[in-house]
Amino acid sequence: MNATIRKIVTVVEETRQEGGRDVSPPTRRAAAIAVIANPFAGRYEDDLTPLMTIGEELGRLLAERAVAALGIDGAKVESYGKAAAVGEDGELEHAAAILHPKLGAPFRKVLTKGAALIPSSKKRGGLGTVLDIPLGHKDAAFVRSHFDGMEVQINDAPRAGEIMVAVAVTDSGRPLARVGGLKTSEIKGEDGLR
């Protein structure tokens, strides 16, 4: 492991009612978040390759944790997302190095598929920073029922020299989705969009 991990947090949410109506079956989503040391905190480093390698490791580890927390096969995951929060002594580019070059491939491998772009967000912040992880359908980004987001927060992270790295997965779209658009039954799943 190249990453020095201080903490791993998993969160599972199950929504059984929305707007006073039963959601049957309940919608479920899970996030796994690692709090790691930022090797480049407090200094400018041109070559961010070590962070890309960390992203690759965490792509697998966090995907496995999140899927296990949801208690389903990876292949049953319907939507996904990723996000990172860099502590105050780091750069936004550090989050980008973890999230974008290499995290996606091992994440998709855990899910067996994932033709769509993995939606992402990033920010810099102090302890207790709230991350909104964007969610989109894993095989067709235009599936409207699965546009969503999951909020995660760890009260003691990220410290100034840390980075919070998060992935989220679901077994469903929004509860009571009813604003039309492309449906899951209409997915072609070839171009990642429709």
Binding site: K7, T10, V11, E13, E14, T15
Partner: peptide, 18 residues
Amino acid sequence: VVIRKRATIVEDILHEGG
């Protein structure tokens, strides 16, 4: 008892600087 939502949170704490 009418439940709207459930959540489960697990923290694995490996170290805190030590």
